[in-house]
């Protein structure tokens, strides 16, 4: 299997606060990887570093042997927040994506919009959060790339819509491509993953194949995660040492 993402000794701090600390890992061709952990554990920081949206203090990242900023044509990225202007319609967003990405498939995007019951002429400002999430996902999943990176694609989305989004991700990602999906809602998505990476306070707590975890621990990913992290305050998780 080819290495798609290589991370070596990556550290990023925010002043005195730790973002991620000395993270090293490789992600391979065709893997579906779950980047899991409570809010603030470093998932988004790691993803931003892979995308070149943050600069590391130490260590290095490469995507298919290229620097993050040189590999944007190889990666389709869904950030945590909406990056389109509110006045834009999906038709306009499609036009932007068609301009910049040769691999963008507009007919696929139109099909996805239809599945999500969204209208191409509807401005983003009139959409609910769930609708915006679906709109962004449509753009990202309508590209044919070797690597997809989705950062919390289901946060703030109701459970019914989550299932629709998940189904869409499964159906629409380029076959044989690598998919990295970060979330703190593990129960909803664990059937998707080949491999899970648990993050905790900027460190990698666990990096294991799902098959191995289930076979050796006799638990689902969600159960194992809950065992490591005990719930406190408002449904968030906290690791019990």
């Amino acid at each position: 299997m080819n290495n798609m993402v290589d991370i070596i000794g990556l550290t990023r701090r925010y002043g005195s606060r730790r973002g991620i600390e000395n993270v090293s890992l490789s992600i391979y061709e065709g893997e579906i990887v779950g980047l899991l952990g409570p809010n603030g554990c470093g998932k988004t920081t790691l993803i931003k570093l892979i995308m070149g949206l943050l600069q590391p203090d130490e260590g290095s990242v490469s995507v298919m042997g290229l620097k993050p900023t040189e590999a944007h044509h190889l990666v389709s990225y869904l950030p945590e927040q909406t990056y389109l202007s509110d006045w834009m319609t999906m038709e306009e967003a499609f036009s932007v994506f068609e301009d910049f990405y040769r691999d963008f498939d507009k007919s696929k995007a139109m099909r996805m919009l239809e599945e999500f019951a969204l209208h191409p002429e509807q401005p983003l400002k009139t959409m609910s959060r769930g609708m915006k999430e679906k709109a962004n996902l449509t753009l990202v999943m309508s590209r044919y790339v070797p690597v997809y990176i989705l950062d919390e694609p289901m946060s703030g989305i109701d459970p019914a819509a989550r299932q629709t989004i998940l189904d869409s991700i499964l159906r629409n990602h380029n076959p044989g491509s690598t998919l990295i999906l970060s979330t703190h809602l593990i129960g909803d998505v664990e059937m998707l993953f080949d491999r899970v990476i648990f993050m905790d306070e900027g460190y990698i707590r666990l990096d294991r194949s799902v098959e191995d975890l289930r076979a050796n621990e006799g638990k689902s990913v969600d159960e194992y995660f809950r065992e490591l992290y005990a719930p406190v305050r408002g449904g968030d998780y906290y690791y019990v040492r």
Partner: peptide, 9 residues
């Protein structure tokens, strides 16, 4: 937020 698009083009 728009930077997430601009800087990933």
């Amino acid at each position: 937020n728009q930077g997430y698009l601009t800087h990933t083009l």
